[in-house]
Amino acid sequence: MAAGGDHGSPDSYRSPLASRYASPEMCFVFSDRYKFRTWRQLWLWLAEAEQTLGLPITDEQIQEMKSNLENIDFKMAAEEEKRLRHDVMAHVHTFGHCCPKAAGIIHLGATSCYVGDNTDLIILRNALDLLLPKLARVISRLADFAKERASLPTLGFTHFQPAQLTTVGKRCCLWIQDLCMDLQNLKRVRDDLRFRGVKGTTGTQASFLQLFEGDDHKVEQLDKMVTEKAGFKRAFIITGQTYTRKVDIEVLSVLASLGASVHKICTDIRLLANLKEMEEPFEKQQIGSSAMPYKRNPMRSERCCSLARHLMTLVMDPLQTASVQWFERTLDDSANRRICLAEAFLTADTILNTLQNISEGLVVYPKVIERRIRQELPFMATENIIMAMVKAGGSRQDCHEKIRVLSQQAASVVKQEGGDNDLIERIQVDAYFSPIHSQLDHLLDPSSFTGRASQQVQRFLEEEVYPLLKPYESVMKVKAELCL
């Protein structure tokens, strides 16, 4: 049975990233139509530049190519590739079939990587351009969430054990800070992308030097003109047959890092959902379990974690691919890159769409948070109580021993009897502590235990987050809708 299948058929496997999760716009960027249309555009740009620099290419040939950029006979191309065992030459023939007058000058002087690699770089750039505003929107939604809850005390956790208090907004800023680093890295790697350009079979530009009869300047002009037509500021000066596969490492490393950030955020949300302090959106008709109707599973956060793990592992592909590119190139890269580049971007696209949807509907339960604080705060307040007693004339050592005994009794009630923490009640009825009984409410005010959390939130948002989001103001209103 021949390899390949009808990918629109229910009898043929289709990647869930495309069929179930990723956005239509990201799927289109990695589609065959987008790819092969870009090949034709690159052939047109090459012909236009070659004509401008004096090669015998007519206006009629150029116009014929322009008129057929979208006229792609995919069936013919597939048949040609089956016959020739070469995808680029299959599309040269297919393009030439609908451009008979231009057929002889299509791909003039070029090698397969002229269309293959340059198209990949265009796709990487455009895919990054799709991700950047999506990530900015996630940051914006979380920034709104953090600002609104900047002063809401909550129990902090280290080692997932109760620690000092923080605020809900401050905790959210930990998430935002990681995503801001990801946004900066995505922008950097996007701006650092260079075009492969017009380089020939081993990167020496020998074929173009021959076409222009040894004119170095025209060869350099050709490279520059096509690079500018493709919208790049610069091209690699040095290439082998391909652009260095280190570029793929750079791009997928940034995406993998984004995956790590999203995994951490969504894990926190899942843990908070278990504590009943916070939940992701839950639709009115949504079913959490087929057997347990009360369940409210954090399905979206779980999906993000599941896909983020996949995204983090994909960076190993370009690392290994770059390491086995012998001399000017081997074909070890080809099949692998067809999979890992598309999957990385479709996965990143999915987790950003999902995280935006989550961040637009996060639900906080202040009463649950308050109750958990009441359970733990008495123990945390013991040092403040000791200091207040010393100020009232008591002995630190005597007070410490009193607190120690009462704390152990209260802990026994919590752990052995399943009761509430009654340390404060014990202190309130103990005559030894009568000098500070009137101060206990103040000493137990949760806001006095959150330090500068709310001020940190305000400063972080104003100095770091809002300036970073400013270039994306025009796209901030787009909502994230999930079908599944």
Rank of each mutant, 00 (worst) to 15 (best):
T111I: 01
Y466F: 13
C172E: 03
L440T: 03
H437M: 06
A77E: 08
T154D: 08
Q286K: 03
V315I: 13
I265W: 11
L155T: 01
G116N: 14
S112W: 00
L84P: 01
K66M: 10
E370C: 08
T313I: 10
F208D: 04
E50F: 07
T242L: 07
A102T: 10
R309C: 14
R452M: 12
V226Q: 02
K75F: 10
A143W: 01
L211Q: 11
G451D: 03
E220P: 01
V219P: 05
L311P: 01
K470T: 14
L193W: 00
E280K: 01
L44F: 06
H400F: 03
F232N: 02
M225Y: 10
E401R: 12
H442F: 14
A348R: 02
C99V: 13
F30Y: 09
S395A: 09
A102I: 09
E376K: 05
C399E: 06
E25V: 12
D430I: 10
D317A: 09
C99Y: 05
L355T: 10
F345K: 02
G394D: 07
E417P: 03
E277G: 02
Y243L: 09
L255F: 13
Q241V: 01
A342T: 15
L255T: 11
N297E: 01
H217Y: 15
A127F: 05
G203H: 01
S359K: 08
M312Q: 10
T227C: 14
A103V: 14
W45D: 13
T313P: 09
Q241N: 00
V413K: 11
D144M: 15
N118S: 04
H400I: 05
P378S: 06
W45Y: 15
T202Q: 10
L209E: 13
A273N: 11
K477L: 14
G197Y: 02
L314Y: 15
G200S: 12
L108Y: 10
P133V: 15
C99E: 05
D398A: 14
L311S: 03
G96D: 07
L183I: 13
V219W: 02
R33G: 09
D144R: 15
Q51L: 09
A102H: 01
H7V: 12
A322P: 03
K470C: 14
Q285W: 14
S438C: 12
P133N: 12
L55C: 12
L135Y: 07
Q409W: 07
V92L: 07
A388H: 05
M26T: 06
S151N: 14
I351W: 02
L44I: 08
P293E: 00
I176R: 01
Q325K: 01
R270D: 00
G240D: 02
E370T: 11
G231F: 06
S434H: 09
G203A: 01
A136V: 15
